[in-house]
Simulated assay, not measured.
Amino acid sequence: MSQKVLLLNQDYSPLAVCTVNKAFILLYLEKADMVREVDGEALHSVDRTFPKPAVIKLRKYIYLPYKNVMLSRQNIFRRDKHQCQYCGKSSDLTVDHLIPKAKGGKTTWSNLVTACKRCNTVKGNSTPEEVGLRLKQKPYRPNYLLFLRDYLGNQNKDWEDFFPQASA
């Protein structure tokens, strides 16, 4: 039961991704309703069979303040699709400050990019423009819902209808 289940709020907005076990408990306790089930798969108890959830919806609306994606090394890599933002290489990766810390650069979503060690060394304590490096994409702060969709391994076709179609 390592598959994930999309958890929707009462208004069908994506709230989180949870385990099949957690989803089943919410369904069993009647705190959630099944929206979509996994075709051809089921959960079995000693004497009963239950459909395996793919998407569930809470019965009561949960108010959550605006959620941010936490700034971390792994989340920078996820946002940048595990590729150097200068050359496109996908191995030997580090995090690079566009404006170096020594020149007043901050540790923010808009100042950090994934870079391979070679490009990071070439850039050194300069800005990309000063050494002739060009970014493949401008760094941005990921939206929480798009982060769930794009970066947490959403390969589940049952989830597509519940996320915005535009990319971040």
Rank of each mutant, 00 (worst) to 15 (best):
Arg118Phe: 11
Pro100His: 06
Arg59His: 06
Thr107Asp: 15
Asn21Glu: 11
Asp150Ile: 07
Lys117Asn: 13
Cys87Asp: 04
Val5Pro: 01
Arg118Asp: 12
Ala16His: 06
Val35Glu: 06
Ala23Thr: 02
Gly124Thr: 05
Leu26Gly: 00
Arg78Val: 00
Lys123Tyr: 01
Ala23Asp: 04
Asp47His: 15
Tyr151Phe: 14
Val35Asp: 07
Val69Glu: 00
Pro164Tyr: 02
Leu145Phe: 12
Phe162Tyr: 15
Ser2Glu: 08
Thr114Trp: 12
Thr107Lys: 12
Glu130Arg: 10
Thr94Glu: 03
Ala23Arg: 00
Val122Asp: 06
Gln74Glu: 13
Gln165Asp: 08
Pro65Lys: 08
Asn156Met: 11
Gln165Ile: 07
Thr121Glu: 13
Ile56Met: 03
Val46Asp: 15
Lys136Gly: 05
Val131Phe: 10
Phe163Gln: 09
Ala166Tyr: 04
Val69Phe: 02
Lys4Arg: 14
Ser126Arg: 10
His44Leu: 07
Gly132Leu: 10
Tyr151Gln: 13
Asn156Asp: 14
Ala32Met: 04
Val131Ala: 08
Val35Ser: 00
Arg78Lys: 14
Arg48Cys: 11
Asp150Tyr: 15
Ala32Thr: 03
Ser72Ile: 02
Gly153Ser: 07
Tyr28His: 09
Gly40Glu: 06
Pro65Val: 05
Arg134Asp: 12
Arg149Ile: 04
Thr94Ile: 00
Asp158His: 11
Trp109Asp: 02
Asn9His: 08
Asp150Met: 10
Arg73His: 10
Arg36Ala: 06
Lys81Tyr: 09
Pro65Glu: 04
Asp11Ala: 02
Gln155Ile: 08
Asn9Leu: 06
Phe147Gly: 06
Pro53Ile: 03
Cys87Asn: 09
Val95Met: 07
Phe24Arg: 02
Leu26Ser: 00
Val113Leu: 06
Asp92Met: 01
Thr107Phe: 12
Lys157Ser: 14
Tyr66Pro: 05
Leu152Cys: 13
His44Asp: 09
Asn68Ile: 08
Ile56Phe: 00
Cys116Arg: 03
Lys22Gly: 01
Ala166Ile: 03
Lys106Ala: 15
Pro51Met: 01
Arg149Gly: 07
Thr127Gly: 10
Arg134Pro: 04
Tyr28Gln: 12
Thr121Tyr: 14
Ile25Asn: 08
Pro139His: 13
Gly104His: 05
Leu148Glu: 07
Pro139Asp: 11
Asp11Arg: 02
His97Cys: 08
Trp109Ala: 11
Val122Cys: 05
Lys157Gly: 09
Leu26Cys: 03
Ala166Leu: 01
Phe77Asp: 00
Lys60Gln: 15
Met70His: 10
Thr108Ala: 05
Arg118Asn: 11
Ser72Gly: 05
Glu37Ser: 12
His44Tyr: 08
Val122Leu: 12
Glu30Asp: 12
Ala115Gln: 01
Lys123Trp: 02
Asn68His: 14
Asp161Thr: 12
Ser2Trp: 01
Arg149Met: 09
Gln85Glu: 00
Ile76His: 05
Asp11Cys: 01
Phe163Leu: 10
Gly40Val: 04
Ala168Arg: 09
Val17Ala: 01
Asp11Lys: 05
Tyr86Ser: 01
Gln74His: 04
Asp80Leu: 03
Gly124Trp: 00
Lys117Thr: 13
Gln137Gly: 02
Ser110Ile: 12
